[in-house]
């Protein structure tokens, strides 16, 4: 294999295994709330050039100059064991940051798509993205106070999911509820993993 600047697999024991989970969904759907309630949340900024990769999706037409833009990301850590750590990354919600998604999604265990039934369409782009990339995801319908709850089945129908991705209710403010969403995602990823092993030879 060509040297790409990375070292091969780490040979030694005691190296932490890091797991990435994305938290996606529309603006105000509860991404930050979920990351805060279930993990040790930490500041993370990324200052990126809106350049080649950005141009295709960025509608700053007529702006020829490359410019940097600062994006604050939700970033949280859950230490399961000394050698097993789960990292949560909130995906930037605005369309101009689509170019960051592929990088965020690389190697991820899967994603939670936060949905607000008042603005369900806001989460469609996230659902599309994860379906297109064949990534395990869970739709978490965030129940805000006083918001009428729709039956999950009608939410699932409205989302027109093409996969068997779970749709669950949650209250992102509650740690246990947010935790359950992550457990559902991990179990779903495990199920998909075992299924893919049945149909595909390893390798």
């Amino acid at each position: 294999m060509a040297y790409d600047g990375y070292e091969p697999d780490l040979p030694t024991a005691g190296i932490p295994f890091t797991i990435k989970i994305l938290i996606a969904g529309g603006f105000g759907a509860g991404k930050t709330t979920l990351v805060s309630s279930v993990s040790e949340i930490r500041p993370l900024r990324t200052e990126e050039l809106l350049s080649e990769r950005g141009e295709a999706v960025d509608s700053l037409s007529g702006v020829e100059q490359k410019s940097t833009t600062t994006v604050a990301m939700d970033f949280g850590r859950i230490t399961i064991r000394d050698d097993l750590v789960v990292y949560l990354f909130g995906t930037p919600g605005q369309q101009r940051f689509w170019f960051m998604w592929d990088e965020l999604a690389y190697g991820a265990l899967g994603a939670v798509v936060m949905a607000d039934t008042r603005r369900l369409a806001d989460c469609f782009p996230s659902v599309d993205y994860f379906e297109r990339n064949d990534m395990p995801f869970v739709v978490a319908v965030n129940c805000f106070d006083g918001i009428r709850r729709y039956p999950l089945e009608s939410v699932r129908r409205a989302l027109d999911l093409t996969t068997d991705s779970p749709v669950v209710l949650c209250d992102a403010r509650r740690r246990e509820s947010s935790r359950d969403v992550l457990v559902t995602l991990a179990e779903h990823a495990l199920l998909r993993n075992s299924r893919s092993r049945e149909v595909m030879p390893a390798g």
């Binding site: 600047g5 990375y6 070292e7 697999d9 780490l10 295994f17 890091t18 797991i19 990435k20 279930v38 859950i78 399961i80 064991r81 097993l84 789960v86 690389y106 190697g107 991820a108 265990l109 899967g110 990534m135 395990p136 935790r179 992550l182 457990v183 991990a186 179990e187 990823a189 495990l190 993993n193 075992s194 893919s196 092993r197």
Partner: peptide, 27 residues
């Protein structure tokens, strides 16, 4: 420094995925 790309977990050892699910359940 050396920089080690993490292995993608999607198709990795199911044991890791199981450890994650079990570990999250306990937090």
């Amino acid at each position: 420094v050396t920089i080690h790309r993490p292995a993608p977990v999607g198709l990795t050892d199911p044991k890791i995925l199981k450890d994650v699910a079990d570990g999250l359940r306990r937090i």
